[in-house]
């Protein structure tokens, strides 16, 4: 909770105690723990003098602001047409096998979450994915183990 209060305070200092601080605060919390809990939204609502419902409605609009607990590393696999054409399905399968979870799930140790996302803007170098903010391109099932291993050991 102390961290959340600090994030709110910092963003309010930058953006003002106004509604325009809302998304930066939500992003700050996601950066801290990968998702925003209901309690955090209540804290934000108090700080910005908004209703909690308003905060929830806004947060739920954006796909990079998760309301459910996510792992330390969120893997977002691009599902747009060109990545699909270049073998996204196989990459996804390899990820599921490597992480032993299904799409949409989080590993038991809360290390990884696996989701699909719309176009990452990496169409010429697909299939592509993001691990948190880091892009990976020209993916093949064979590459998956090495990519994941790097994060396993982080």
């Amino acid at each position: 909770m102390a961290e959340i209060a600090k994030i709110i305070q910092e963003k309010v200092e930058t953006y003002g105690r106004e509604r325009k601080a809302l998304i930066p605060i939500l992003q700050g919390i996601v950066a801290e723990k990968n998702y925003v809990e209901n309690q955090d939204m209540v804290s934000i609502a108090k700080a910005l003098d908004l209703s909690a419902a308003d905060v929830y409605g806004t947060a739920s609009f954006y796909s990079f602001i998760e309301n459910e607990e996510k792992g330390e590393f969120v893997i977002r696999v691009c599902k747009s047409i060109t990545c699909e054409m270049k073998g996204k399905h196989k990459v996804l399968k390899a990820l599921e096998d490597e992480l032993r979870i299904k799409l949409g799930e989080t590993t038991h140790n809360k290390k990884f979450s696996l989701v699909e996302t719309n176009c990452l803007g990496l169409c010429d170098v697909g299939p592509a994915m993001l691990v948190n903010e880091e892009p990976y391109t020209h993916l093949t099932p064979e590459k998956i183990h090495d990519v994941i291993s790097v994060y396993r050991n982080k």
């Binding site: 209901n38 939204m41 908004l50 209703s51 909690a52 419902a53 308003d54 905060v55 929830y56 409605g57 739920s60 609009f61 309301n67």
Partner: peptide
Amino acid sequence: HVNALTVSHKGNEMKISTFADLPFNEVV
């Protein structure tokens, strides 16, 4: 000025919600 209701999610999931979709008797 109660704001117990909001629009949540987007696209085909867009709906009218209370805070975190809590039951009506638990919200403002």
